[in-house]
Simulated scan of single mutants.
Amino acid sequence: MTLATIHAQPLTSQAFAPFGDVLEAQGAPDKVINQGNCGRFHDRAALDFGPGGRAGVSVFDAEPRTLPYKLEMVERHPEGSQAFLPMHSHPWLVIVAEAGDVPGQIHAFLASAGQGVNFHRGTWHGVLTPLHAPGLFAVVDRIGETPNLQEHWLDQPVLIAPAPM
């Protein structure tokens, strides 16, 4: 069986906007703080923890994957946003799907060193997918009493490949 192939594109704020926020230090900082020694890129994510939720910071240590990557399942968090902040300096893979009761068209992005993402509440996305060890990420998401994870197994897996040169 031949799998549908999607090419991972560079992660940009504009391309990722329908799914969430790109977290990076690009352009001039909003403020310069700490006696002029630190640029602050202020309030870059629309964090959403929903009713009855609170912010939680966790550390994930994910096994690295390789490209091409076979995508079989996506997930979403209906009660709040989820931010992935790499604790390393390596590129990593970000996979999202267009909105709906079931995932729509799949999109893949290659995040550069220094880029994190915040998935908006309810955004279908792939699991944390580092491409190099260590796969350490700080994750900011909703902590609460209600279930906040829905998984959807794809009818047909999708192959995620690097963008052609």
Rank of each mutant, 00 (worst) to 15 (best):
M1F: 15
M1T: 14
A4C: 07
T5Y: 00
T5R: 10
I6Q: 01
I6R: 03
I6D: 00
H7Y: 13
H7L: 02
L11R: 03
S13R: 14
S13L: 05
A15F: 04
F16W: 02
A17I: 02
P18F: 12
E24C: 03
E24L: 00
Q26D: 01
Q26P: 00
G27M: 01
A28T: 07
A28K: 09
P29C: 07
D30M: 01
N34D: 02
N37Y: 13
C38W: 06
C38L: 15
C38F: 13
F41T: 03
H42K: 11
D43A: 14
D43L: 11
R44K: 12
A45K: 10
D48Q: 11
F49L: 04
G50Q: 04
P51H: 14
P51D: 15
R54T: 09
A55M: 14
G56C: 11
S58H: 15
F60R: 12
D61I: 03
D61K: 06
A62V: 05
P64N: 03
R65P: 02
R65K: 15
R65W: 08
P68F: 12
E75R: 09
R76N: 09
H77Y: 10
P78D: 06
G80Y: 07
Q82C: 12
A83C: 15
F84N: 06
L85A: 11
P86M: 05
M87C: 13
H90A: 11
P91E: 07
W92D: 02
L93Q: 04
L93K: 11
V96C: 02
E98D: 15
E98H: 14
A99K: 09
A99G: 10
D101A: 12
D101S: 06
V102M: 09
P103L: 04
G104D: 08
Q105N: 13
I106G: 00
H107M: 00
L110Q: 11
L110D: 04
S112V: 00
A113Y: 01
A113Q: 03
A113R: 00
A113L: 01
G114V: 02
N118R: 08
F119V: 01
H120W: 07
R121V: 06
R121S: 06
W124R: 09
V127H: 14
V127C: 11
V127M: 15
V127Q: 13
V127F: 15
L131I: 06
L131G: 01
L131S: 04
G135W: 12
G135D: 08
L136D: 10
F137I: 10
A138G: 13
A138M: 14
A138P: 03
R142P: 03
E145G: 13
E145C: 09
T146G: 07
P147W: 08
E151H: 12
Q156L: 10
Q156R: 13
Q156M: 10
Q156A: 14
V158C: 03
I160R: 00
A161H: 01
P164N: 05
P164R: 03
M165V: 10
